[in-house]
Design a protein around this nucleic acid. Structure first.
Length: 544
DNA sequence: CAAGAGGGCGCG
DNA sequence: AAAGCGCGCCCTCTTG
């Protein structure tokens, strides 16, 4: 059932098969030692027996296996599961619950380039067998065992997917990217110089402000120059500048937009991050406390719409781009069992809310829903909340309860048992005396965090299940070959599959049915739909 | 010279 | 339009 892999200091590998004994407890059944170059074949062999591999950190093991052409179907990522179980309200009473920080409470190992020669893999984290058995104890003794099992599996499968997506890479056309940049900024300038369009905007800004040496990248200098020109600004943010009437505003906003594109996703970015037609960001599962993933390198979480035209399928291939429509409100609907909101979500959720008469327009419905999930207190979001509460009392009560728990210093949990950190666990201690305005403000902010945690965190669980199911159905139907359709990008509620054109339509269907199956897996027969918008395109920019 | 804070902005 | 959540990464400016 489980096979533990442990790397020793001399780079040899202990492989330990773990079985359930006659007493029902798990224990190591047999053990052998491998040399580094025997690992691939051993894993290949184990895959034929549906092994679930247990290792300390997927990022330390899987990239090199992938480079050797070895796929892994199932694993347990001890580090990721440890973090869940240690914090989870569902494991109270277990040895792991609230245990002191230890070696498994470390960040994911930085991903090594699997193809690199002479990589010395570090020794595994200590006592992996003991850690694994403690995790099994915590899960099996939990009153919410089924949910924790699902979460642990989904989280570990996510780690496999993260490594596989980095291995595959996002198909990226450097020439198309260069064309986009040239159209927006002017031709690529020599190193250290600004592109033409940026120089033009800069000259206009300096002329309009009568400040020939101004550096608009310095907020301090810019704000001083704007004030000298008679503009009463408190910041240099776009939204504040937009409301002003002055000749400098148009070129300044134009400059800011171009400068952002240049420094964040310009030619330097292209040189640094795109190799052989692929962009390979490092994905970091559970980088956020809510379980959402982060990325490291290249800003893959923030790929601007402006460069998505450079994400182009290989010849004979297509990109199947899918995003879950209105995911977080639908998650809230299912979590709370709010039947009125479920009815409103039979089609477009926001239109459905308008149809109940709670608000007048679709955009009001959207602002009100976001306000409810984020804890808006002012503006349109805050103003519309009471109407939403009247129309959907159960859904709103769920987030209000989560907020009150957070404000009182408590913890909240997602559907599957990921639990919020206690306040102050991260960086600074909260000041001791209650009643101080800054303390109250801090606790209200923490309440907004826990309010959002249950929704965002459960949505992240749904997304993990969606991807895991999709990965399995793709592998079952098309195998793992180099030309089989495969995931290349994931962004909270959106996936991209790179697929041969001939099967792209079929892949789109699998993406949709995986979403429906994820909904059933988490919420059973609850009458909540999880529709996805799927587009089969040549370039990412053509979707949506 | 490096690290960190703060402003700003891209994404969901 | 921000506001109210979650990120990563750029720039400038201050501090050690």
């Amino acid at each position: 059932m489980f096979t533990l892999l442990v790397r020793r200091a001399d780079e040899s590998i202990d492989l330990t098969v773990i079985r359930r004994g006659s007493d029902g407890c798990l224990a190591s059944a047999e053990s052998r030692t491998l040399e580094q170059d025997e690992l691939g074949e051993a894993v290949r062999q184990g895959e034929r027996d549906a092994t679930r591999w247990v290792w300390d950190d997927t990022a330390r093991w899987y990239p090199r296996l992938l480079s050797a052409g070895v796929f892994v179907e199932r694993c347990v990522d001890l580090r990721l599961v440890h973090a869940i179980l240690r914090a989870s309200a569902f494991t109270r009473g277990s040895a792991i619950h609230a245990s002191p920080r230890g070696p498994y409470d470390t960040p994911q190992a930085p991903a090594v380039d699997g193809s690199a020669l002479f990589v010395v893999e570090p020794e595994s984290l200590p006592d992996a067998l003991g850690e694994f058995l403690a995790q099994r104890d915590a899960i099996e003794a939990s009153p919410e065992r089924a949910r924790l099992e699902l979460l642990a599996t989904a989280e570990s499968t996510g780690a496999l997917i993260a490594a596989e997506m980095r291995h595959a890479g996002i198909p990226w056309s450097a020439s198309r990217h260069d064309e986009l940049l040239t159209a927006a900024l002017g031709p690529r300038p020599p190193a250290g110089e600004r592109p033409l369009r940026l120089l033009e905007a800069l000259a206009e800004i300096r002329a309009a402000l009568g400040s020939p040496d101004l550096n608009p990248d310095s907020p301090t200098d810019l704000i001083r120059a704007l004030r000298a020109a008679g503009l009463q600004v408190s910041s240099t943010r776009q939204w504040e500048l937009k409301s002003l009437e002055h000749p400098v505003i148009e070129p300044l906003l134009r400059y800011k937009k171009m400068q952002r594109l240049l420094v964040a996703n310009g030619w330097t970015w292209l040189d640094a991050w795109v190799r052989d037609g692929r962009f390979r960001p490092e994905y970091v599962p559970a980088a956020a406390a809510t379980g959402r993933w982060g990325t490291s390198g290249g800003g893959a979480l923030q790929l601007p719409k402006a460069v998505r035209g450079a994400v182009v399928a290989d010849p004979g291939h297509a990109l199947v781009v899918a995003d879950a429509s209105q995911l977080e409100p639908r998650i809230l609907t299912a979590l709370s069992g709010d039947t009125a909101m479920a009815r409103a979500g039979s089609g477009d959720l926001y239109e459905g809310i308008v149809a109940t008469g709670a608000v007048a327009t679709r955009s009001e419905a959207k602002v009100a829903m976001l306000g409810a999930m984020y804890g808006a207190t002012q503006g349109d979001g805050g103003r519309l909340m009471p109407r939403l509460t009247r129309a959907f009392p159960r859904a709103i009560a769920l987030v209000e309860d989560a907020a009150r728990v957070g404000e009182a210093g408590g913890v909240v949990s997602t559907l599957l048992g990921r639990t919020s950190p206690p306040p102050g666990a991260g960086s600074e201690e909260l000041p001791p005396e209650m009643g101080r305005p800054d303390v109250d403000r801090g606790m209200r902010a923490w309440g907004r965090f826990t309010r959002n945690f249950v929704v965002q965190g459960t949505a992240a669980e749904w997304a993990l299940c969606w991807m895991g199911i999709l990965r399995r159905s793709l592998a079952e139907r098309y195998g793992r070959g180099p030309d089989a359709p495969h995931l290349v990008f994931f962004l909270h509620d959106e996936v991209v599959v790179h697929s041969p054109e001939a099967v792209a339509a079929e892949v789109a269907g699998l993406v949709e049915s995986a979403a429906a199956e994820a909904g059933r897996l988490l919420f059973g027969a609850a009458p909540v739909r999880f529709p996805v918008t799927v587009a089969t395109v040549q370039a990412y920019s053509e979707a949506k």
